[in-house]
Design a protein around this nucleic acid. Structure first.
Lengths: 333, 333
DNA sequence: CAACGTTGTTTCAACGTTGTAAACAGTGGC
DNA sequence: GCCACTGTTTACAACGTTGAAACAACGTTG
């Protein structure tokens, strides 16, 4: 075990509290005393015991980031930004993986993690607005990447409906008429899928085009590949596909190319997320790029305000920006 | 704030310690008392305050996982397994990103994170064996994915030299003679790069073939793409390339395809890591698949033994298994 | 020169938990 | 009726920290 304030105090010949004052940068300490204490501090290589400090102050300096899965590049990239933003506040981040399971999301909201974290940033999939409203635990909470209409918690997200409409418009703008959506989900209470579907529908309706929707269960490459195969097998295969995220698109890309078709000549393809993979695939992938750094920073800021300010104030909803990245999968070389 | 043992004790009409005994499953508590206390516990929805418990016990139940970057798929996939393995021990995992910087790795080894974590799993890049041996902090430490020869800490890794030799042998076995290695690094004191290079060299030497080595600074797609472009520009471009990880290989793949060359007909391509991207690229990527779940489990087990057993025992070195995954990028359709 | 404010330092208590040791009640043996 | 024993419960202290309050020494002010 390392040295405690007491050890320092003994060595420097002052009281424990005086050492504490030096450590915490309290103003009224005489230069002589300060020097003595600092000498002792560095001699014993003092490190504060945060369990004790936290016990005393009722804070842990740790937040939880709960997301479906870390091995999805979008969430991995996002996590990186969250961790960096939290580090600036000297917070640590523990990662919880929900696998999109209702049960695990519930447990996180229940604060099952005891008093270990000061707040939670949750990227919800399964849990719905009603259940969120009913939660009893008062740990600070921020929802990320979601838009639960009039939800009971702070949240930050890009405008998923508008983003989906924009990218669909882009496909239609290429002159394609059989534009399919790939990525609808059946049992997502609050995921982005319904929003992206809505955006797709708005665009299709605005141009009087018929809708084609392929469903998946999870947002993974394999599911995208399978769903694309199913689309290709239809009597009238699409000439453009908007996939609800980049992983699905990369899976679909694999199926299309393996079938001997060309992208974008035979089928134009677009995703959403702007994960790094899509910038190096062949062809490179057209996508919507949410500003992940901004999303992360806003989430952390909201959480900080919530932690500092208590549960009182009204929930806030903050939008983050995004950009269309037009690449080879729709524009060609 | 939630209820404390004191509140429960008051409500149940027993002492604080008795409540503590019930909570901790101590045997000698009368059924009647136990029932009373449990009733009170659930009525007030008691959650132990872990800061207090940790202070008392000198443990935090949190470990740190320090790795270069979370947005590299290999580390993201690995993290997932580490988090899952730790969860079985009811440990939380905080992620620290080192960016492969010597300074940040040092700070982690210094235990800069105070007494917040019981142990650290570190995936080292920059730091060397000598510095590891000299560290003063006695936080439990396990090295992951590394093989620092006769290092001073426990570690777990696949046999990188043998894996690199195996995959190079595979390329040579295809009849290729100008096999290049892509991914050597200049300033990595303990990364896997030197080991993989050694394995490549062994295989080339065994067949009397000339070596070609392309360097990179970081293991990212962009670097792989650039290094590949440089290889293609040489007077005698390679007919096979072993990239030191899959990300480099995917970057290289992009360059090769964009140059109008065919894989594997013109250039056979192999990586190492078996990240999901490589299973869905076109062509799919031949690679070495380390058993990531096994790596993670062993790392967590070693760390647990180290935490429980103290710094006394000798450092242990444990190997994990791997498999060759032959896919289209060397075998064709 | 007495009352007062400032600066520097200390004492005390408390955060919530659990290990130690001791108190207490009940049982059975002698 | 005393002792030893088992099972159940409790009082106390301690983990390392910091806020509140007290205190001492000093210079300023009326």
């Amino acid at each position: 075990m390392g040295a405690s304030l007491r050890d320092i105090a003994r060595l420097a010949g002052v009281s424990v509290k005086t050492v504490s004052n030096v450590v915490n940068g309290y103003a009224h300490v005489s230069p002589a005393t300060r020097a003595k204490v600092e000498e002792a501090l560095s001699r014993l290589d003092y490190r504060p015991n945060l369990s004790a400090r936290n016990l005393r102050q009722g804070r842990t300096g740790v937040i939880a980031l709960a997301l479906p899965e870390l091995d999805s590049p979008y969430f991995a990239e996002l996590s990186r930004f969250v961790i960096d933003a939290a580090a600036e506040l000297r917070w640590l981040v523990v990662i919880e993986q929900t696998d999109g399971s209702l049960d695990r999301e519930r447990r996180i909201l229940d604060g099952v993690r005891d008093h270990r974290v000061d707040g939670v940033i949750l990227s919800p999939i399964a849990i719905g607005a009603d259940e969120l409203a009913a939660r009893t635990d008062d740990t600070a909470l921020v929802l990320l990447g979601e838009r639960i209409h009039d939800g009971p918690a702070d949240h930050v997200a890009i405008d998923n409906v508008r983003a989906a409409r924009d990218i669909t418009e882009h496909l239609i703008g290429l002159g394609r008429t059989r534009v399919a959506a790939l990525g609808a989900e059946d049992n997502a209470a609050s995921g982005t899928a319904p929003l992206r579907l809505a955006g797709y529908r708005e665009a299709m309706a605005a141009h009087g085009l018929p809708e084609t929707v392929a469903k998946v269960e999870r947002y993974r490459r394999g599911q995208g590949a399978a769903a694309m195969a199913e689309l290709l097998a239809r009597p009238e295969p699409p000439d453009a596909v908007f996939c609800f995220n980049d992983l699905l698109a990369l899976g679909a890309m694999r199926t299309i190319l393996a079938a001997g078709l060309r992208i974008p000549e035979d089928i134009a393809l677009a995703g959403l997320d702007d994960i790094e993979d899509g910038r190096f695939s062949t062809p490179t992938l057209t996508t919507v790029a949410p500003d992940k750094a901004q999303l992360a920073r806003i989430a952390v800021d909201l959480l900080k305000q919530r932690i500092d300010g208590g549960p009182g104030s009204l929930p806030r909803e903050v939008g983050a920006s995004y950009r269309l990245m037009i690449r080879e999968s729709t524009a060609g070389r």
